[in-house]
Every structure is written in C-alpha cells, then in structure tokens.
Design a protein around this nucleic acid. Structure first.
Lengths: 216, 216
DNA sequence: CGAATTTTTTAGGTCTGTCTAAAAAATAAA
DNA sequence: TTTATTTTTTAGACAGACCTAAAAAATTCG
C-alpha cells in the first residue's frame, strides 16, 4: 500500500467509527486498531501523522476525531467507494456481496476527473448497492429517506427494502437467495420467511411505487 | 505503492524494454532505471527480488530478462492496462491522451473476476484506444493486422489509421485536433496536412471498410 | 481512596524500497 | 594492451508503516 493509501485507510476508519459514536465523541485508539486490524501503537503513529496533516485532532490518552478538513476528505473517499461499488454491481454484474474488497482498492485511485466521469456515467446515483447514500462531489450527504429497521416496522404494513447494514458477505448472499434485494417489497406474509438473523440486517422504508415482491 | 505494485512496475518495465530490444537480449540496469525513474541500485535490488520470485533471470553486469512465468505475468498486466484504457475512453469518454496515468494505477487492482467482467462488459476488445493489441486472458497476443508506419505507406494510396506509437500527450491531442483518430481514413490529399512530427507517430493499415475521413 | 486492571503511548526493532558513495567489472580508447 | 571511462553492483543509510515490550496515564474496583 502506498503512503496515501495507508493514510486514507486510517482516515476512513476514524470517520466511520466517529459517525457510529456520534459527532462530538473521541474515537479510541483500540477501536481504530481493531477496525483496521493493526496494533494500537501503529494507530497512535498514524494519528500523529493525520494530526500533522490537519486531518485529525488528537487528545493523548483520550482518542482522536476528524477536523472539518479530515471529514471532507473522508467523504470524498466514501463517495469514491460507493460510486465504484455501484459501477461494479450495476455495470459489471457483480453481486452486492462481492464488491466491497474491490472497491476498497479502487477508492484509492487518484484522479478527480475519473470520479466525476464515473459519477456521470452512472447517472449521478444517490445510493450504492447496499442502500448507503453517496456523498456529492462537495461532500454533502442528502439522504431524505427515513429508514427503519425491519424488526421495528409495524407487522401489518408492507414495506420496501431500502438498505442493508454493513453486513458480512454471507448475510448478503442469504438475503439474495430469499429474493430480497434493494427495493424489494415485503408484505406482512413475506416477513415470516425471513430468519431473525437476516431480518435484523435489513432497513426498510414505506412502500413507494411499482416494485418487486419476493414472489416472482 | 504497495510491495506488489513496485514489483509489477519493474516487471512491466523489463517486459517493455525486452520487447523493444528483441526476445533474446538482456535489458540493462540503466535502461530499466531510466524507464522507471529510479537509480540503478534500486533496479539491481528489485531484479534480485524478481529473480527470487522466478520472474526474471539475472546475469550480473549484463542485464536481466523475463522467464516464461515473468512474461506471462507481464502480459496479464498489459492486458489489464489496455482493458482499463479502453473502458476509460469508450465508456467514460476520456480522450486517448488522458488515460495512461489512470490506467497505470488501475492495472494494479488485484481481482481476477474484475478483469474478466470488465473484458466481457467491453465486448472482448482486441485493441486499446491507441491501437495496441490486448492480450487474451491466457496471455496470447493475436494481432493479425499488418501495420505500417504512415511515412512508409505509398503516397498515392489511401490508408486507415491503425495505431499510434507510444506518444506523449501533446502528439495525441494534436492528432485529434487534425481529426485523426483510430480508424480514420487518410486519402493521399489528407496526408499533406499532417506535420512530419505527427505523421511519424502514426501506423496505418490498408483501408478496410466503412470509415471516417478527416473531412466530415 | 488506593490498588489492580485496562488503555495508550513511547522506545526500540524489522521489513521493503529508495538513495548516495564507493568498489568491482566491463567496455572503450589511447 | 594498458589505461581511462562507463556501467553495475555492493555497502551503508533513510523513510514509512508495521511490530513487541515496557512505561505512563486513565479507569475500575475492593
């Protein structure tokens, strides 16, 4: 991995964990180390670098969090990742469980015009194959959907699959084999077939328009 | 750059220079160093590594050349590079002068299924945007065209642009602005407009079928 | 509150690819 | 063919990202 690839990976880890924990909070060294599969001292070292670069703020023995600049850079990475995932699924025909690792590499390709052209080629998509929103070129996430965990959705109302949580590949494969993909309409009776372990990975929204049901 | 990216860059340099010089010949350390923009001792070190990996043969103080395995690996890199260039030009709308640097990054993406799917998505192209042949998945280059330098082509016969030599970006831009691209038919009178410096970068073949002329 | 535990940082080392400077081999020239 | 020049390799050092082990700070618990 290149210098910038390493930095970008740490940046994205800090962004991701920071989002999970809430805006103000400090992300612990251990959490980042676990997320990146490295040892804590490596994270400390890279946090110092990110701090030098103005990407992150570091409170020794407390943790780190992104500066506005760091957050902006992280969002361009997220944007690239999700655009590439969209390309891989929609154009190349990959399954939604296959694309994460490849996009993880593609997101580090350094070319602004490439991202712009890819975005246009895909028709300026707003969500990726897992239902995650794609930030705009300016780093805005405009996600107007109101997603609800499937398990919290009223049992008697139909809904539509809007996203899946960051899941392992197996969960995604099993969902596919049940006929569940993005946009699938789930009627009350459809939900009975879905094992709990899978159902808790699914986020739904109110049924919108003409969409597919699990019964084809 | 990652470990494998560095190795792959040296491998490709050795392949490229070896092709230019002819099959049997040894590629000098200096030539590789100049091509890769590193100092000779770095090349020596990497040649040792490639030798360890079974990719290259090294005769101290003479040079290096690829083993059959090395050549096979180099051809998969060339294949990836040229497929990505094709994608960038044909799908994303880049100019043929813009794609080399981006493809240089993309060719290092590690995923066999990605290459296969990209190849299929592009319709199994046989030449890239510069007219260079794209090796097959098995590393075969089947280029049946008989390309001739434009300057050696009979002055009274029309021809068709089949390829451009590895040129700098400016040459490619100027060719484009003269209406010359891959497949362009050049009639005897068209050739008069082409400056020598550009003409010597162009390879042509007999006119085949329905194609574009410079006069639109 | 003070001791035990956990977390984080520092210290020091490895690995890989780069470099410069010096030595060795090959080539060119006198 | 003997010397001078060029090319290549070796020797030794540096930069970056990683590691383990030990020290320092924070937290938890009796």
């Amino acid at each position: 991995m290149s210098k910038s690839t390493h930095r970008e990976d740490h940046l994205k880890a800090l962004y991701t964990l920071g989002e999970e924990a809430g805006q103000e909070s400090w992300v612990s060294t251990n959490a980042m180390a676990a997320h990146l599969d490295v040892k804590p001292p490596s994270v400390t070292a890279m946090v110092h670098v990110m701090s030098e670069l103005g990407w992150a703020e570091h409170r020794p023995y407390r943790g780190a969090r992104l500066t506005p600049l760091g957050k902006k850079l992280a969002l361009t990475l997220v944007r690239k990742h999700r655009l590439w995932e969209t390309f891989l699924v929609e154009r190349l025909g990959f399954g939604w469980e296959e694309v994460h690792d490849i996009a993880e590499q593609l997101e580090h390709i350094d070319s602004v015009s490439l991202v712009d052209k890819l975005d246009a080629y895909l028709g300026h998509p707003t969500i990726d194959p897992h239902g995650d929103p794609i930030p705009t070129a300016k780093g805005q996430i405009a996600d107007s959907r109101r997603l609800t965990p499937l398990l919290e959705w009223p049992h008697d109302k139909p809904c539509q699959v809007g996203a899946v949580k960051d899941s392992n590949d197996k969960v995604l494969v099993e969902l596919t084999s049940l006929g569940i993909e993005l946009g699938t309409v789930l009627r009350p009776e459809d939900r009975l077939k879905v094992p709990l372990a899978l159902a808790e990975e699914v986020l739904v929204e109110p049924q919108s328009s003409q969409e597919i049901s699990t019964n084809e």
